[in-house]
Design a protein around this nucleic acid. Structure first.
Lengths: 193, 193
DNA sequence: ATAAACCGTTGACAAATGTCAACAACCTTA
DNA sequence: TAAGGTTGTTGACATTTGTCAACGGTTTAT
């Protein structure tokens, strides 16, 4: 079950892991199976693990005063999930994370991850690159949010995450883009014509 | 001129820098004075430095097809500026960065920064914490963009960055929030009544 | 097998926000 | 000092987007 994680690390560090390193990693991560709709994190909880998705699909979202959900992140195989702010500051999370499909994740606790960084240099490299990619993606999303029309935001989304179109229904994608499902439906209709 | 940077590093690492470390840092950073409106980075350039603001105020923004500017980041003393994506990937930047007031920055090149990380452990710690803070702030801004009304986004901004209200005019703050200056003016009017 | 939930679409309408033009007050700067 | 830019405000109007209700087609659960 850990092999996709090993492949992921190798891909981002251009190195191969030794047997021993693989052992250490396997001991640090705990596999967990989630049924569709099962929570990994609920608003108010402290996020004590980061999760690597081996199989399945998940979403991270906030819920507003009116009970409406707003998708902060969508994630499938080879994506990481978790609320960084809660994880780093040990504060109650503002978000929910749950499984959109039946999902297998590898969970790691903060202390174990910090240990791994010391024991497996490739792990540290990988984390660094993950952070870089995350910060670049965040910057682009912020720029899109303040300067693109809904139509352009959707076009960019289709371009960047074509797999997501197959895995998540339109109303989740609409929410991710900050618009309603009706508006997305109309944008798609216009573009088809 | 570097003393505010030393203080900044000390604050984030809870350590004091040795004389030798201060020397190394001083050699790695290059002070630069910018006049109001002077560019530090222009769209299409590759961002080869990160900058630490010692005195002054700057902004980072994109320009859309119609020539309108959209503020991606505002920054004052003790803030870092630079386009991470261009800096990390060596790709042409999508953004402009310029001085809003006469400004003094300390610039550091990528290679020098990587060296410093090796030579001054506190520097690495600081960078790590900077990245963490950046990623938490980005997450919050994304969540605000997709789930808050303009009014609530402004309220949050006032709460988080009260100094910015004194340093930047309303039309820049409006742009940062993803709305027009007219809309912000009306929001403020309503709140005052 | 049946009921219930989910998904996407559409129409009518409401609300939020943008656009454009004008204005006054204030700075800059030549 | 005069001219020109900047800043913030307001009004009238246009556009975008949201809200609500309804519908048919699917999938899911019992």
């Amino acid at each position: 079950m850990h092999s996709s994680l090993f492949a992921y690390i190798a891909q981002y560090t251009q190195t191969t892991l030794t047997e021993e390193e693989q052992e250490l990693i396997q001991r640090a991560f705990h596999p967990k199976k989630l049924r569709k709709k099962q929570y990994l994190l609920q608003e108010g909880d402290i996020c004590r693990h980061m999760g690597f998705i081996v199989r399945g699909a998940m979403r991270q979202y906030s819920v507003d005063d009116k009970g409406a959900e707003h998708i902060v992140q969508l994630a499938i195989e080879n994506w990481w999930v978790g609320d960084r702010e809660s994880y780093l500051m040990l504060t109650p999370s503002l978000y929910n994370i749950d499984a959109w499909e039946d999902t297998e994740v590898l969970l790691i606790e903060k202390a174990d991850l910090l240990n791994l960084y010391q024991q497996v240099p490739a792990m540290m490299q990988m984390a660094r690159q993950m952070d870089d990619r995350h910060s670049m993606a965040s910057q682009r999303r912020i720029n899109a949010a303040i300067s693109f029309s809904a139509e352009k935001r959707y076009a960019e989304f289709v371009d960047c995450y074509p797999e997501f179109l197959q895995r998540f229904p339109q109303h989740l994608i609409a929410s991710y883009l900050g618009i309603t499902k009706e508006t997305l439906s109309r944008i798609r209709k216009q573009q088809a014509m």
